[in-house]
Design a protein around this nucleic acid. Structure first.
Lengths: 338, 338
DNA sequence: AGTAGCCGTGGAATCGATTACACGCATGAT
DNA sequence: ATCATGCGTGTAATCGATTCCACGGCTACT
């Protein structure tokens, strides 16, 4: 592969001049520029990003560590992150933590070894001294979706309070009183927050949230299945199961079907996170949609603000309720999307 | 951030010795090794991968360019690729082409600029002189899922012939005779191949595949919707719509619902590519499952074989039919998964 | 005419690693 | 005692870029 020396030789100039042409430095004669460009073309020369990064101490690369690539919510997020970053001249390396702290740490370490310019993290459940350390050392960093409390790092996330209030009001209006929730891991901020908002919204309607109606999940389908089985085994099972993420909702659906029950006639389902497939499930699932695209874009902009020395900003965007037919809604066109 | 010089100073040795310790070179005294390790620990030193790559001319990074991250088939593939690569000590940078050749080329170029050790590509529809060029220059490269005919590059893919035969036999046994297919882009190998296998399997049962029963799709949901609308408008619509990928099947489902028709009573659906959500759709969709995990692993191994100078091997793995209930099957437990 | 200043250019240092080569010292064979 | 061998170590070249500094030549001003 041709290097800058080859180009210099071919163009009959020094490497310094080649570099200047490539970085559009003003003081290069038109003639030299022409010869360099011709040589670049002739040799099919492409600058070595590795060498450039070593010298300039910047890679124009962002790291994104997410908790589960197979979760459509995170793929959508990853996609918008990459898109925005590309638009701003950055590349993105994605690390999949699979909800495992050690794997998360592995990716963080690898990304740091590669000297990425900034890190976008949606921290997995569990302690991570490493992450705290990285934050302290001043590596540009932004939390997306989930965050670690007590650390001074900008957070870009969706606020579900209002949407959860809307959901509870919607369920209440449909006549449902016994509402259960499948929570996320206690250690994740999103996990706790959603339960609290749910509890509060129920209280506003004079409803209690008994412990038996709080299932412990881990954001994976299987945990949703197990929690739901436990609900169904109760002497008085809930009328609605609200899952704190999309995968657990699918698990809940499985558990209900396995029992031979029907949704929504026997029991209703709602979910946090809306995904395209919820339109096609039987029945289409009522869900709370996060503005994934905006979230990803805002996160990238906040991170690049830090990288380029501007003051960063935490961003909170509202989520919104999308009513379908999994909670006993009477709709004329079931499964209609917006 | 501490560099190898700082470690050397702290340990009272030269950088060469530090490097030897870090690369477990044999001739280092136990004493020096101990001091270096202590210094590394004390400084929290991590080798700069950028500098190392510049010197050794290898990044221990693989590039993966896929056509659509939002497609669960490709996310599953990406996940297994990353997993296998990580196990072998490589990182993976994923580029999402979004089925757009120019975006694919952008990623290929960026990855090459970063001097990745090898490239895994599932080429998007359309010409890409760049890709051909890269192949010629000897960059280690392997095609996954799709490939470009006439180029001497190993291909790792699933063979759907047998599964498609099974599918057609299954449909025939259920009494269906008018079978339609929504094809992928003509320029993709997977697109053509699936249509041809389908046509052949039908012929084996004495059935014809009229042109009106071949819809042109682009592997996106919307095209599946449009193709299906056209089928439904036919004087004699098909009894089954077979989509050449999962997204188009979802589009087909939409179109059928929008017409107020029921699946499978009025018209049946089958799909190439099985995804977890097909269990939860209404009704669960009969599909052809690819061994995604094996595909990803085999692709990584083939690529690393090239990278490390071993003779690579093309791999073809069989896909298999997963019967559910979207084609009028009478099942006792609809939606059961395996 | 002499000099100050600017412009285009090249030489060389630098980033942080790896590694070929040389050197000093101890050991063992002769 | 002498010399070959080998081990542990350090010096310095190298990878491919960027960029500071200096230099030569030209213009323009006094």
């Amino acid at each position: 592969m041709a290097s800058i020396k080859d180009v210099a030789a071919q163009a009959g100039v020094s490497v310094a001049t080649v570099s200047r042409v490539l970085n559009s430095h003003p003081s290069v004669s038109p003639d030299a520029r022409r010869r360099v460009l011709a040589a670049v073309e002739a040799l099919g020369y492409r600058p070595n990003a590795v060498a450039r990064s070593l010298r300039t101490d910047q890679t124009r690369t962002l790291g994104l560590v997410i908790s589960d690539v197979l979760n459509p919510y995170f793929t959508a997020l990853a996609r918008s992150v990459e898109e925005e970053a590309r638009g701003l001249g950055y590349s993105v390396i994605i690390g999949n933590a699979d909800e495992r702290p050690e794997q998360q740490d592995h990716h963080v370490r690898t990304l740091l070894d590669r000297r990425i310019d900034g890190l976008l993290v949606s921290p997995a459940d569990g302690e991570s001294p490493l992450l705290l350390d990285v934050a302290r050392t001043g590596t540009p960093m932004v939390f997306v979706d989930r965050w670690i409390p007590g650390v001074d790092i900008p957070v870009v996330r969706a606020d579900g309070h209002r949407a959860i209030q809307d959901l509870v009001a919607h369920l209440y209006a449909l006549g449902h009183r016994r509402l259960a929730i499948i929570a996320g891991p206690a250690a994740t901020t999103t996990g706790n927050e959603r339960v609290e908002a749910f509890r509060e919204a129920m209280r506003a309607h004079g409803l209690a949230l008994p412990d038996a109606y709080i299932g412990q999940g881990d954001f994976q389908a299987d945990s949703g299945r197990r929690a739901t089985e436990r609900f169904l085994a109760l002497p008085e099972p809930p009328q609605i199961v609200f899952a704190a993420d999309n995968l657990m909702a699918l698990g809940a659906l499985d558990a209900i079907r396995a029992r031979g029950l029907r949704v929504p006639e026997d029991i209703g389902i709602a979910a946090f996170d809306d995904i395209p497939w919820f339109v096609h499930t039987g029945p289409p699932i009522t869900a709370i949609a996060q503005p994934t695209g905006d979230l990803g874009r805002a996160a990238v902009r906040a991170l690049i603000d830090i990288v380029e020395g501007r003051p960063p900003q935490s961003v909170t965007l509202p989520a919104r309720l999308v009513v379908r037919s999994s909670c006993g809604e009477r709709t004329s066109t079931p499964g209609s999307n917006e």
